[in-house]
Structures are given as C-alpha cells and as structure tokens.
Computed example of a mutant assay.
Amino acid sequence: MKLSVFTVVTPDLTPEELAQAAKEAGIEGIEWRYKEIPAEAQEEPPSFWRRNLCSIDPRSTEEELDRFAKAASGHGLRSLSVMPYLTPGDLEGTEKAMKAAKRLGASAIRVGVPGYDRTKNYNELYEEEIAYLHGVEELARRYKVKGLVETHHRTIAPSAGLTHRLVSRFDPAAVGVLYDPGNMIHEGYENFRLGLELLGPYLAHVHVKNTGWKPESRRENGKREWSSYWEPVSGGIVDWKQVLADLAAVGYDGYLGLEDFSGTFGSRELLQVYAQDMKELLAGL
C-alpha cells in the first residue's frame, strides 16, 4: 500500500509547496481538491472548506490545470484523482471533472451521492442515484476515469453495505468505492473486514482520518446527548492497525489518502506525522 494526501487538509500550501512537502514526507500521490474559493473568502485565512490554496477551480483553463499536473510530476508524485463536491445527477459537472482528471493524468474522480436527512424517502433517492450512476458509467468509459462513491455519513451511502448496493450493478472498472472508515464512525459502522470483503473489486481507494464521540449536555429526562468530532489519525475510534490488516487480507495494494480534519498539526507537520505513523503500521503487517 502507498500513501497519498487529499489537498483539502493542506489549505495554506500552494500546489507547489504541497508537492514538495509531500515528497519530503515520503508520500507518493496527490488527490486534488476541485472547488472554487468563494468571492467573499478571498481575504480570509486559509481553511479546509473556503480559502483553500491547494484547490483546482472548476473554471480553470487547460493551461491552469497544467500547473497542478506539473507540481505533482515535478516532484515525482502521481496525480491520483480530482475530488469535486458534485450534486447527484449533475452529469455536466461530472464530465467537466473527468476532463480535468484526464488532463492531469488522474484515474478517478469522486461523484455525487444524495444526502439523507429524513425529508425524502430513501428509495426515491436510491433510484435517482442509480440513474445518475448509469450516466457516470458511460462517462467513465469514455474518458477512462473511474467514478468513486464515497462512504459518507448523512448520505444514502454511509456504510460499505449500502454503498455496495449502489455500485453493484455497474462495471467495477468504471464505478468504484472510496472507502472511509473515519466517516463510518460518525454513521454507518460495520466490521471493516466484512465490508471490504463485500466490496471486492469495487474497492478503489481508502481515506485515512479518525473520529471520536463525546458527551454533551443532558436532556430534561436525564439522558445524555453525544456528538461526534474529528480526532488525529492515531487518536480516534478507528483502529488503523486493524483496518490495514483487513485491507491486506483482501489484497488491497492501492493508496491510503490522508484526510485529517482534526487541526492538531500544521500542514507540513501533518504530512510528516501521517507518513511516519502509517509506515510503522504497514511495516508491522
């Protein structure tokens, strides 16, 4: 297994700075955040979700995209994927992201998945997503760029089981799964090895982060409320030693992509700590 970084977690680094820091840490691949900076955020301090200096603007020209490709290749790194925040059903936006990935030499993009908040029936959302994924599959074959469905809380794909239900009718060469154990602590937990065995050929990429739960105030009836929050990779509920063993058991040899939202470390230190911790765990397999 190899290491990569999703640039959402290095918002204060330019593409060139990120590539250099990743190379120095021993990280081999980059997942480029694909999202514009809001006009009102241009003067804000760098942040994960707003003024992220390591993001590709979807309005970028081919020449502007080449900057990101060169930042990676110039440091001997691979551009793995383009990571947009697509609305389910947006095939125009999906195609545009695939074109960007193709220009970068990346092999995958993240596709849209409906959120779930009890306001619309799951079965309706499921059928809408299946119709969208048919279009994703066609585009993936055309551009040779795989569409990835991420296991993510507060969507109709919070677990490996429900994600597999979405992708199982499609060609795994065109539609795959971005497996995220950290998200599954918020919602969707299953025994990790069970889920990985179920996903089989659909397992395309893994995100690495961690999550905790903490008690909040008590309700009037005395019952405790709980909330989930982000932890450093080595400090949360996900046992990454076990997850890596489970990944090895199913024959996974792809990338492990850093997506730590805990804010515990600065960007450069985060890359160093992540690479050191993961390499130690991998060496013990």
Rank of each mutant, 00 (worst) to 15 (best):
L148M: 11
G74S: 11
H153I: 00
V243L: 10
A108L: 03
P181Q: 13
Y143A: 11
N52C: 05
A245S: 14
I156F: 01
W230K: 04
Y116K: 00
I56S: 06
T7D: 09
G284H: 03
V5F: 05
H75I: 10
L162G: 02
K2S: 05
T94A: 15
A69I: 03
Y274W: 09
L18Y: 01
K35E: 15
K241W: 10
E129Y: 07
Y122Q: 08
A283V: 00
V82D: 14
K2T: 02
A140T: 14
G93P: 01
A204H: 14
M184K: 02
S217C: 08
S228W: 13
W226Y: 15
A69V: 11
K23Y: 10
G76E: 10
R51G: 05
L199A: 00
I27C: 09
E137H: 08
A19Y: 07
A174Y: 12
F170E: 03
R118T: 14
T151E: 10
F48R: 07
L18M: 13
G182R: 04
H207V: 05
L91G: 09
L148W: 07
A160C: 07
W230H: 15
D12V: 06
V149P: 06
Y179H: 08
E216W: 08
A22L: 01
A131P: 02
G236E: 01
E92T: 12
T7Y: 01
V5C: 13
R103E: 13
L194C: 11
I237L: 13
V136G: 05
L258G: 07
G257M: 14
N191G: 12
I237T: 14
S4T: 06
G212C: 03
T163M: 07
A101L: 01
Y132I: 03
T10F: 00
A275H: 05
E127R: 15
S79T: 09
I237N: 05
K209D: 09
E44A: 15
P232G: 13
L133V: 12
Q272E: 04
L125T: 00
W240G: 05
P158F: 04
F6S: 13
A100L: 13
D253I: 00
D260F: 07
L125E: 12
E36G: 14
L104G: 11
L13I: 05
Y189M: 08
G222Y: 02
G222L: 02
H164D: 04
W213R: 10
H164Y: 15
Q42V: 09
E220N: 00
Q42F: 07
W49K: 02
L271P: 04
G161Q: 08
G89P: 05
N221M: 10
L91C: 08
T7C: 04
W226C: 06
Y189H: 15
H207C: 02
A41D: 15
L139A: 11
L13E: 07
D246H: 12
T211L: 03
E190V: 08
G263N: 06
A173M: 08
R165N: 15
R50D: 12
A157E: 02
S159N: 08
A174K: 13
E225N: 11
V206Q: 12
P88G: 12
W32T: 03
P158M: 07
E137G: 06
F170N: 05
E128M: 12
S60K: 06
E190H: 05
A174G: 06
I130C: 03
A174H: 11
A249C: 03
A106K: 14
K241G: 10
E43V: 11
W230T: 01
E259P: 01
W49N: 07
G236Y: 08
E40I: 07
L91W: 03
L18I: 00
L162S: 13
S81Q: 04
A140E: 10
